[in-house]
Nucleic acid binder design. Sequence first.
RNA 1: GGAGAGGUGGCCGAGUGGUCGAAGGCGCACGCCUGGAAAGCGUGUAUCCGUCACAAGCGGAUCAAGGGUUCGAAUCCCUUUCUCUCCGCCA
Length: 423
Amino acid sequence: MIDIQQIRDHSDEVILRLKVRNMDAGDLVNGLKEVDQSKRQLQKQLDDTLAEINALAKEIGVLFKTGKGAEAEPLKEKSAALKKQAKDLQEQLDEANAKFQELIVRLPNLPHPSVPAGKSDADNLVIQKTGKVIPAAPDALPHWDLAKKYDIIDFERGTKITGAGFPVYKGLGARLQRALITFFLDEALIAGYTEYQPPLLVNEDSAFGTGQLPDKDGQMYHVPSDNLYLIPTSEVPVTNLFRDTILQEDELPVKCTAYSVCFRREAGSYGKDVRGLNRLHQFDKVEIVQITRPENSYKALDEMVTHVSGVLKKLELPFRTTRLCGGDLGFAAALTYDMEVWSAAQGRWLEVSSVSNFESYQSNRLKLRYKTADGKNRLAHTLNGSALALPRIMAALLENNQSEEGILIPKALQAYTGFRYIQ
RNA sequence: GGAGAGGUGGCCGAGUGGUCGAAGGCGCACGCCUGGAAAGCGUGUAUCCGUCACAAGCGGAUCAAGGGUUCGAAUCCCUUUCUCUCCGCCA
């Protein structure tokens, strides 16, 4: 969440910057300022009252010790009255705090100055195109047909055993999937990331910490009997490893990578967007996460984009990088780059990675700080990115590399698959 | 799932109602000592909130979490949660 100090000192700027998200935050920000004010006032009153109570208790203690217990009686009465007052103030303060919390979690992160204005993904700024987009042959098959032709993904039986959006990978398809995971992890390892294998279910605190709750409630699968959530991305468990943590400055940057299965309910999706592998309820992803000092986070963001680009180049897939516009920017992100690969047979770009800098928005919720050389605790910056999401990579590989001989596995992957063609 | 034991500061570990945010030790930082180092000696060493200049100082909160008893609780009571031991079940 946004640092309240920023709202106290620069509320106009906050409102202005949120306009890039097409959000009119005026009422919210001003309401927040008011609640903050009364909250602090109540805090002061309560603290003063408690201080009086504490002083009385000490006095009474001394009286008892010196055998003047009788003299303590009026003090006791006074204390009782103050206690009642304190309880009252405490209730008011709790109320103010709840209100404050309710309001502040509704404020999304402030967009970075470079975020373009815009309403939807159509307004995202294309900043880089890499690789040649060759028009697909007229008889090119979309990946769902190729999956059937080579018997490598079984959508129907996935639907039978679970439901739509839960494909079954089979034979060379399953092996290609496994190869991709290992390849991605190895690439991250080379880039200096430490590999993690996190739990696939998280508790409420974790879901809140990275911002899935309360903003995206309903997007996650929930297990009510244990009040746990299936992770929509390993960003959630991995970033939460550092919840309530004060790191030493020399531990930064922290660089983590994790492969995990991801679960998303995707309520409300439909049409060609969800055909085949385009949008699934369960999919595999390798994620990269960095925790940095504030002054280094944008350098780290560039580094992560470069890393993902490098992996895509090794896969020989044509891709483009876009900078998300204000309207498409995620709730917690300050700046996001999307990487999209060209899907030849579908003739469209498929998002395979999203790399974001959250600045201190997540770390403020997570209480993720680091101790500077002069002993001060500061909020760290968090970043994450997909490197990469598997299904659409799979889709693009199938569609782009199809020929009469079968589907050619890119050279960099062959060492991992152990085969050159899917035939 | 059943029975029992327990959760104290970065770590270990005292503390069963009164000036305890908490003894002592370790670790760490700085200083003295030394040619340099070790040892030794000394000093310091949690987090959050408020006041305020995001200083100092002062005040408040925090001994797993929440609630209660009391003038006063790390210490007593209740609930929750986690860890450990034994049993059960089990990949």
